[in-house]
Nucleic acid binder design. Structure first.
Length: 491
RNA sequence: GGUUCCUUCGUCUAGUGGUUAGGACGUGAGAUUCUCAUUCUUAAAACAGGGGUUCGACUCCCCUAGGAACUGCCA
């Protein structure tokens, strides 16, 4: 039997790290078992649905290179893969449950439910949730209400009739048996909403069965509803798939990862210059490991080596610092050409390069890449790092030209000397130049850094830059000399 | 409040009854270096607590504590 797994997000917001992790695990599990990876869009919440979210889902999958074997835009034998296009199916099955006595119409108003919730909150009773008000309506009452509703152009919701006693066991590949008393399950959850759309519980169970999903890999937050789903499968007379609940991804404070912890959406990570390779590698490593030493994995390797047994049960904290480290590692693994190509969009966005880039701009970037590759954590770092290659520099505050142990006088003198030297600089090798500067520093009784600091600030406008000799060659003789002269003129 | 799940360095983890409890990020120190970064060396840092079981428990069982998730006509 080939495994069939699915990633089934709800397009009600940007794809976040938790979702990405679920997608990744499903994808790798499918690949590693020679199975099929299905994408299903669970857009049954019409209130929160947005086209932008759906687009973001595709963009994210695309960015990460997670191709689905079946799903929207691709099709497959079990379509449609967008739940809003399957409404008829859910309605049919929901009514089938009513006929079989496993579900019932509920006519309770939002207001009544609201009041009920309010009351329960205050009473702090152990049992919360729906009071099963409509569960035992007599056939006459039910028909009357139904007519009343339909005459008014309304539809009642359909609720699942949970067993009042007993317990239900869900088998989980990771956690083993998870048992819940039926009386502890949220009482008679809604299956079909009044707008005719199914709730998650109904749609999910029906689709997973109809699409012949063999394994459900989803976040641990679904554990409490697991037994409910098992009950639903049973009511339909179906065999539940195998479950594997994935540990959650938390923020530093141990709470579910959210905006206040930092970036959480794939889009933010993409835009600030994290490589998909790094995201894939790092995100997979929170909650999963291969052994005690290997931590670098390409997507292709993970497709082979991933296994459910190595998943950790405990939730994991998302460590932004470690992600940065991974990203830096991956940036350094890129070929110079590849890195340059990935960097260019950031320069364009910062207004430093035109779009499309000119040959000259490309050449400057190509020259800069060897100097910055060791220094980048994120691709977006590039614009501030080398803006002086594209734009003029202005030293507003001349004191930043002064090295740590220098004075305005000594600095002015050094700059004048440097201004006189820059011409010769370009005729010599870096080694020769360094020798000259060292000799000059010694003559002045200072360190070479005391000469290089004013030079660096004069040429790049900042006290932190790539190695200054190489940088000057990138900037060119004209501009470099001019900048040094101008800095000297400041005193 | 109730239900369910979880618990090895600050963080991610290895470990499956006998180990000096290993690695990685981060942090400290040092080296390299023109700044920054990279790189290298090195240090500090953990089995939540209490009971059992056992010749022997991080590993098995129980209890406690702590944490999390769920408790919607959201998923």
């Amino acid at each position: 039997m080939t495994t069939r797994v699915r990633y089934a997000p709800s397009p009600t917001g940007l794809q976040h790290i938790g979702g990405v992790r679920t997608a990744l695990f499903n994808y790798f599990f499918a690949k590693s078992t020679g199975g099929r990876f299905i994408l299903r869009v669970e857009d049954t919440d019409r209130e929160r649905y947005s086209d932008e979210s759906l687009q973001d889902l595709f963009d994210t999958m695309n960015w990460l290179g997670l191709d689905w074997d079946e799903g929207p835009e691709k099709g497959g034998a079990y379509g449609p893969y967008i739940q809003s296009e399957r409404s008829e199916i859910y309605r049919r099955y929901a009514h089938k449950l009513v006929e079989k006595g496993y579900a019932y119409y509920c006519f309770c108003s939002e207001e009544r439910l609201e009041a009920l919730r309010e009351e329960q909150k205050n009473s702090k009773s152990d049992h919360q949730g729906y009071d099963r008000h409509c569960r035992d309506l007599s056939p006459e009452e039910q028909n009357a209400k139904l007519k009343e509703f339909r005459d008014a152009g309304k539809e009642p919701v359909i609720r699942f009739k949970l067993p009042l006693s007993g317990a239900t066991v869900m088998e989980d590949l990771l956690f083993g048996k998870i048992t819940r008393k039926n009386s502890d399950i949220s009482p008679d959850p809604v299956l079909l909403k009044s707008d005719g759309f199914p709730t998650y519980h109904l749609a999910n169970v029906i689709d997973d069965h109809l699409m012949e999903i063999t394994h459900i890999l989803r976040a641990q937050e679904w554990i409490p509803t697991g037994p409910l789903h098992v009950l639903l499968y049973r009511a339909f007379g179906w065999e539940p798939p195998k479950y594997c609940h994935l540990p959650m991804v938390m923020g530093k404070d141990g709470q579910k990862l959210s905006k206040r912890h930092g970036s959480t959406s794939a889009r933010e990570f993409r835009e600030s210059g994290y490589l998909p390779e790094a995201i894939i590698n790092y995100v997979t490593m929170v909650g999963w490991s291969y052994d005690d030493k290997t931590e670098f994995f390409t997507k292709e390797e993970l497709e082979k080596v991933f296994s459910l047994e190595k998943i950790n049960k405990a939730p994991g904290v998302f460590d932004y610092k470690k992600l940065d480290w991974f990203n830096g590692q991956y940036i350094r693994k890129l070929s110079p050409e590849d890195l340059a190509a990935r960097l260019m969009p950031y320069l364009q966005k910062a207004g430093l390069c035109s779009d499309p880039a000119t040959e000259k701009e490309k050449a400057i970037l190509a020259g800069a890449v060897p100097l910055v590759r060791e220094r980048l954590k994120k691709l977006s770092d590039i614009s501030e790092m080398i803006r002086f290659l594209f734009k003029g520099v202005s030293v507003d505050d001349k004191t930043i030209l002064i090295p740590k142990n220098g004075t305005p006088e000594t600095t002015a003198d050094i700059l004048r000397w440097l201004a006189g030297y820059t011409e010769a600089f370009f005729d010599r090798s870096d080694e020769e130049n360094e020798a000259v500067l060292r000799a000059e520093a010694e003559k002045r009784g200072v360190k070479i850094g005391d000469l290089l600091h004013p030079l660096r600030v004069a040429v790049t406008g900042t006290p932190v830059s790539p190695p200054i000799f190489e940088t000057m060659r990138l900037i060119g003789k004209e501009t470099s000399s001019e900048r040094v002269r101008r800095a000297a003129g400041l005193f």
